[in-house]
């Protein structure tokens, strides 16, 4: 059974169609990249895949859940990594991991230990991009959703994610 199942998922934001009839499946262990026509489409599809926004039409199912009515359950299965880097001046690594652990109700000590291992695997990746990725992975998601990650980080992300399925969006020269 696919972890992510999008069927004709469209997203309209303030009268502008950002994503139009997207259909795709992501199975356990898959690595799927969606090449978007615009930054808005890439962001909209990534957010729909992470149940952060609901499709305007069509359907998005994550695991056994419909993202429109069971978004909180969907979010337990997904680790979302936004496009924007983490402002390191505002939040250090330990503080960020504790914050994420509290939101996902994960044991602090365990989260810290897992985060340090993951950060070690991501050595070489810029911290501002590595921290959000580690934060998403400490909750042990079934699928990692990345909104326009740095193409140069692809191998490092795959190494850190391990058996976790990866769905990423790309746009323009990033693709």
């Amino acid at each position: 059974m696919p972890i992510l199942r999008m069927r004709d998922a469209s997203y309209v934001s303030h009268g502008v169609t950002l994503a139009s009839r997207v259909t795709l499946d992501v199975n356990p262990g898959d690595r799927v990249t969606l090449r978007a026509a615009s930054a808005g489409e890439a962001e909209a599809v990534a957010m729909m895949a992470a149940a952060l926004i609901h499709p305007s039409s069509g359907s998005v199912e994550i695991g056994e859940y419909d993202s429109r009515v069971q978004a909180a359950h969907c979010k337990r299965l997904v680790g979302f990594v936004p496009h924007d880097p983490l402002p390191l001046r505002e939040m250090g690594f330990d503080r960020y991991i504790q914050y994420r652990a509290a939101l996902w109700d994960i044991d602090s000590q365990r989260a810290r230990a897992v985060a340090n291992v993951l950060l070690e695997r991501l050595r070489g990746m810029h911290e501002a991009f590595a921290y959000p990725l580690v934060g998403a992975l400490v909750a042990n998601p079934a699928m990692l959703v990345l909104d326009r990650p740095q193409p140069t980080d692809r191998e490092a992300i795959a190494a850190a994610a391990g058996p976790c399925a990866i769905f990423e969006t790309q746009f323009g020269t990033e693709a």
Binding site: A50, L52, A72, H73, K75, R76, V78, G79, F80, P82, D84, L86, P87, E90, M91, Y99, R100, L103, W104, P132, G135, A136
Partner: peptide, 15 residues
Amino acid sequence: RRGYLDSGERSAPLF
């Protein structure tokens, strides 16, 4: 203003 907090809160399994 605080995009990193918005993103963290929105992606958390909360109603």
